[in-house]
Amino acid sequence: MTTAAARPPSALRIAARRYLPATLIFLGGIALWELIVIVFDIQGFLLPKPSRIASTFVEEFSVVVPAGWFTMKEAVGGFVIGAVAGVLIALTTARWTVVKDGLMPFAIAVNATPIIALAPIMNNWFGITNPMAKMAIVAVIVFFPVMINMVRGLTEIDTRQLELMRSYASTPRELLLKVRVPNALPYLFSALKVGTSLSVIAAIVSEYFGGSRDALGIYISQQAALFHFAEAWAAILVASFSGIIFYLIVTLIERAVMPWHSSIRNVAGT
């Protein structure tokens, strides 16, 4: 018997049910913001109305979007350098445990310090308008969590999984490729996902210390200094969008690389 109730819901309806609450909250939040600014008559330089930010965004499109592109190139470039270096160093620690014992305490200590404070120094090293100065900061900030998590993933393995490989008389190389690395992937991706927002923050904040005029951080700080807050907010909007897209891209890669993992199977199962 096929009744309407027994029919599986359409893909559209499933998507609607999943995304509806978030969409409603988002729209409600924007409406509330608009309302509060109007009702309490908040000055535009303190908090502009969302409608004002939107119209400024359209007016300034040809400036803020290229600036966002410029800054994202620094963020993504630094992210890739930091992540690749973090993974490579982690892999050498898996091979030589002395490296791990020598390096990890420092890595954990450095990771807990505000690396962004180095931004002015990097500006001096590389030249203030050189995007490498920003990329270097981003790379250092992404490097430490990636390396630390990767080392954990390579070493925190169920004893029995190691014993099984030993019972197959596997070589260290096979153990690395077939057990340690796959075991490390969830650790790696959780660091990479945190790294996406860290890298956008690091790129923008290091631009606050000076740099090329085409960059988002410079644009935001200059417009804010001129009390052009709608312009600053429009640029912040670009930064948020870029950050979210960056995060989503990494999430998509994660799903492609480890479709077996629990963080993904729960989504796929609903």
């Binding site: 169920d158 029995r160 999984q161 014993e163 019972s167 008389a169 796959p182 075991n183 993992h261």
Partner: peptide
């Protein structure tokens, strides 16, 4: 004997590799 893979091992936990 281990190097010659003379035995197979089974634990109380299945200990499957979840990525496989």
């Amino acid at each position: 004997a281990r190097l010659d893979r003379e035995y197979g091992m089974v634990f109380q936990q299945a200990t499957l590799y979840e990525w496989r």
